[in-house]
Design a protein around this nucleic acid. Structure first.
Lengths: 187, 187, 187, 187
DNA sequence: TATGAATGAGTCTTCATTCAT
DNA sequence: AATGAATGAAGACTCATTCAT
């Protein structure tokens, strides 16, 4: 099948993304998308086979937009700061966030946790690399770079889920980030 | 409600709890409960108005069963160790756990996060108290007991959600717990 | 699941039978049955899982109503005559016949030919028995009872399908039956 | 229609024939034809108004390909033998056969039985002629050529439908053909 | 209290057919 | 002639909830 109408697909994609960010994953139906995009039932199925298909497309783009700061863009401490600033932004983001939908999707059945797992693993790898580089430059001190990276990721995950459930204050995120950094900073 | 009714309600409750722990919150229907409990559809509605009503009853009991170790049952370090051991158990618990259902419920719509929020807040309070007591006894050192309590809770939450999505190893939990304790321990 | 309402099931059964006899198998939908029986969509699914389920129930009863004349109810020639008279009746039956639906069902996919096959095989067995008995009593002559039984069944099947497609005249059926009988009759 | 168009129509025709022979009549959709022929949806409708239109075109050609042996090509007995050999071939033909589709089409609604009826009637006419010629040459004996022709056609139809539903063995067809011939052969 | 048959709204999915380009 | 995106009607199936008994 060729391209069909790219603009139409984009319209559907955008409407679906909006719906997922507003209602999460489980409460979005194909009918909702049809109504929201102002197209016909059959028309939607021309582009997507179902809400999961839609969601995976939406989340794929989302994941691609989450880039890690370039290791060469500054000192390890600077790179780490950029990374944590991005994390903070995501954690606090209110409208347009797919976090809730992503968690819901991951809980909607086995075999759907890949996205969360991938994000976590990539975060650990990235952080481990940054910490090791910082040790070389003397900016960071760590007896266990991998362990410290894991610890940071758990804290970030903890704040992330807290933000989605009971909410979190910006200052609290800042405070945690401070601690992370000061712990790594050489004495 | 007569005694007879109470036992029936208990039967429904137990079956529902089992279903929620096996399938999470969203994938349990009233029909499932009816079938599992071997009662009539109408009978179920006599005790519960829907799956949400059922879940709130189940989770209420669950929350009550999560007791914090008695502050006077040992030294602050010992009390903390017991608390963290319990947390570890919950994080790693496979069968019978309501964690997934609880997260799903919290995501199922606004106004449903109270349980997770309550647990978190109580955890922070408890830990703050323990740390402060430990400072008095000289076992712990902390420049910000509330902040350290929060930090520990974020790590625990992070591991908890990770366990439910991509899984976590027992050793990883141990490692994090070690770090928490050593950080608090006076030098 | 217990009996539910037997009368309701009977109502559905009767409506479905009528529909199948009027429209065949493929052109009957669950909606048709719902409308015809004057019940709700959900109500129908309480009794039958789909049109195939319905059809199998209808055809099962139909098959059970096709009894072979008792071998002891008369001389072999008389028994044969009764059998052929019944066949004729079915072949010529206009309203209420499930023949077309049965053929359609058999063509609707593999694994669905069992009913037609069963009928044919039973017919061959029955006829073989009758012919052999007739040979013992001296009423019939046959050098190959099984082969003659098969031949009769093919003729009956041929008339049956012809009746359903382009139609057949009563006199033509009589004529064929005459031939069958005279061929078997001892000279 | 230009030459170019004719070839396209032929392409569609061939693909449709293949689909009908593989899946019967009811399970072939316009989408199937579009996909199989590798043409556009709109393009297909330029040549055919629907699956029925397609099928009628396919079956028309099929009917034309069923030629009766030339009465002058041999003795009546030889001509009959050729005819029956052809019938046997069709009855046993596995791949590429339109039999199932033809039956399905005939059952798909009234006014669609013409093809089966025409075939049957032509068969009777042909056989009657052959038998009468055989009587003139002294090869055949028959007190009712038309009746004997009808009888043969019913047997052939019976075997044909049996082959499509529960299957038939080559030897069984041979056996029936033997009987037909021996019955006609003068003593 | 208890039953379970009945309801009907809501979702998914497929397909013949049209129409602007 | 030809394309293929778009439509919308039709059909299947499920589930929370009610109600007469």
């Amino acid at each position: 099948m060729s391209e069909r109408s790219e603009s139409k697909k984009k319209l559907i994609f955008d409407c679906a993304r909006k719906l997922f960010s507003e209602r999460g994953y489980r409460d979005v139906t194909m009918s909702d998308v049809v109504e929201s995009a102002g197209i016909s039932r059959g028309g939607l199925y021309l582009y997507y086979t179902g809400t999961e298909d839609l969601f995976r497309d939406v989340i794929k783009e989302e994941m691609e937009s989450h880039v890690y700061p370039d290791a060469g863009s500054g000192s390890p401490a600077e790179v780490l700061a950029v990374f944590l600033r991005n994390c903070k932004k995501r954690i606090l983001k209110k409208s347009g966030s797919l976090e809730r939908a992503l968690y819901e999707y991951s809980f909607a059945g086995s075999g759907r946790e890949e996205y969360l797992k991938k994000e976590f693993d990539e975060g650990v790898s990235f952080l481990t690399g940054v910490i090791e580089m910082g040790m070389e430059t003397g900016e960071f001190t760590s007896s266990d770079p991998g362990g410290d990276a894991l610890n940071i990721m758990y804290i970030l995950e903890g704040m992330r889920i807290k933000a989605q459930t009971s909410g979190i204050r910006s200052a609290d995120v800042d405070s945690e980030i401070m601690h992370m950094i000061s712990r790594l900073a050489s004495s």
